[in-house]
Design a binder for these strands. Structure first.
Lengths: 130, 130
DNA sequence: CTGCATGCAAAAACTTTGCACCGCC
DNA sequence: GGCGGTGCAAAGTTTTTGCATGCAG
């Protein structure tokens, strides 16, 4: 994989934020550094980087996929009110792979999990309204 | 919500199968009963039914969303080889909500999880090849 | 009748891809 | 120079929506 300024820029941006941005958001935020970059290039590089494991692709219910440069296993929270995606500080749930494998004839390699509810901000506002 | 033959048909079909079909698959399979039904109607009803909690929408990494008439909490397995989606027989992991809530200021309402690996069929074929 | 539901087709939303050109090594 | 990467635009895929019409209550 050759060096490319665009890919570098994407990776830098992704590492600089905890927002789990979408391809579109990344595109907009690196345009100052890469005035001529195209959205297609952003997608191509995001796909590439996640294939080689340098970043992680996050797919939730709604909206476009999001990306995360934090490849240490961790879990995500999605706010059902404002849509924010946050990292959760919690231990690995690797034990649940065993639970899943228990009555299963195939092999369990891994799992994907996310949690949802109200984020700290929205929870605060809701409690005020009551 | 008024009665509609189309919605009834979608629900019936979904309840008759364990395949977790996509909107497209549902559409194709109920055409014999509903020759003039449109894909838009299928989507509209699937959205409606999942909003009122009569069915469940499943979003995985790739491909279109899938739907499940089994609304008893349960988990899914996705085969990384053939793409099959299977139900897992395992207990609820509701305890993981507590783990997630532990260092978190917001509220955890629920979680979504799926497991991936090789399904019984693919696992069998792979072990033969070795 | 009144309003929700439908069929149809267009469009929206998101992502991938073909192609000619460009830049890394 | 060769090969991988890019920009651009077109096309692909999945889902939603506007509108006129149809059916349930």
């Amino acid at each position: 994989m050759n060096y490319s300024r665009q890919r570098e820029s994407i990776l830098q941006y992704l590492r600089s934020t905890k927002c789990h941005p979408t391809a579109e958001t990344i595109y907009q935020n690196i345009q100052s550094e890469n005035p001529n970059i195209s959205l297609g290039t952003v997608y191509r590089n995001l796909t590439l980087l996640s294939e080689v494991g340098q970043i992680q692709k996050l797919t939730f219910f709604d909206g476009p996929d999001r990306y995360d440069a934090n490849i240490v296993p961790h879990y995500h929270f999605v706010c059902t009110k404002c849509g924010a995606v946050l990292d959760l500080e919690m231990d690995s749930l690797s034990h649940i792979n065993l639970l899943a494998a228990h009555n299963f004839e195939g092999t369990i390699e891994n799992h994907m999990a996310f949690f949802y509810g109200k984020c700290p901000n929205c929870a605060k506002h809701i409690s005020k309204e009551l």
